[in-house]
Design a protein around this nucleic acid. Structure first.
Lengths: 147, 147
DNA sequence: TACATATTATCTGCATAATGACAATATCCC
DNA sequence: GGGATATTGTCATTATGCAGATAATATGTA
């Protein structure tokens, strides 16, 4: 009989749902969701990227990125600007508000991490991260040329 | 600067998405999805449960269970029968087809596990499972009260 | 250079899934 | 009987991925 309760897939799903729920709770006051936070995080590192570049960096489907950007734009956290050379493309820039939220939201993420990793030592968390990276599979890192 | 790339939440999401995609690929020929497979797995252990019982066992939201059952019923894998005592409730039973799929689909899950855990030793998988259970948080459902 | 073709960026539509809010109905308990 | 509770269904929002459409750009060839 298949033991779904102890299968990696099922446990991954439940751990992921828990992490989502905890993070959701932390950032709820700012009307954001975990994937929206993730996209913002990439933009704090570097903005002025196209949607395709964001899709590649975040390993998110292009239509998903489009929707996330719609909602973040509606919330005034970022804006689409026209690409100066390529009229098909948009460049995504943080607004002042979007930039200003970095510290507050990062703190939410820190609290969230503390909450879900209660019961794991620092070393175990490190080990867990390493294993997640293996399960995630190899990813090709796209270097965004800064020129 | 917040390091989203190495955050537990982000890595969990990506590992989960990979596990989903691999399992999806394995069961695609049978027109099923990973959550549908999970629900079937619980029914292979025991059917004749109500939707609420399935929701509790699988830790799936009640409206989500309703939708999953809709699609599995449409596919002829299970059926809703009226609860003999409680006219509000349905009892969910596997069809012959649903029962017959157990071996085939379990084999898909095994192959899927092999694929995503390539790169991890048996001991590491065991350890990973243990950590996922901790992250998943305490389960209050169907546990013997320790009085 | 000019034109046909291929590629790229985005959007739209569709299906599934997850969660929460609400409604309708049935049951239970006082 | 009546209020509280339980079961299911419906709807809205978000997320995700796939396929197709559209527009713009890049490329190859005459």
């Amino acid at each position: 009989m298949y033991d779904i309760e102890n299968s990696i897939g099922f446990l991954l799903a439940k751990a992921y749902q828990r992490a989502w729920a905890v993070m959701k709770e932390e950032i709820e006051p700012y009307d954001l969701t975990p994937p929206q936070f993730a996209l913002l995080s990439f933009l704090w590192q570097q903005d002025g990227l196209t949607q395709v570049e964001l899709s590649d960096k975040g390993q998110i489907d292009r239509s998903t990125v489009g929707g996330l950007i719609d909602r973040l734009e509606r919330g005034g956290l970022l804006e689409r600007r026209q690409h100066p050379q390529d009229r098909r493309a948009h460049l995504i820039f943080l607004t002042e508000h979007g930039k200003a939220m970095e510290d507050t939201l990062s703190a939410c993420a820190e609290r969230s991490l503390k909450r879900i990793t209660t019961g794991l030592s620092e070393d175990e968390i490190k080990e867990f991260r390493r294993m997640l990276n293996i399960l995630r599979g190899e990813r090709r890192v796209y270097e965004i040329p800064s020129c």
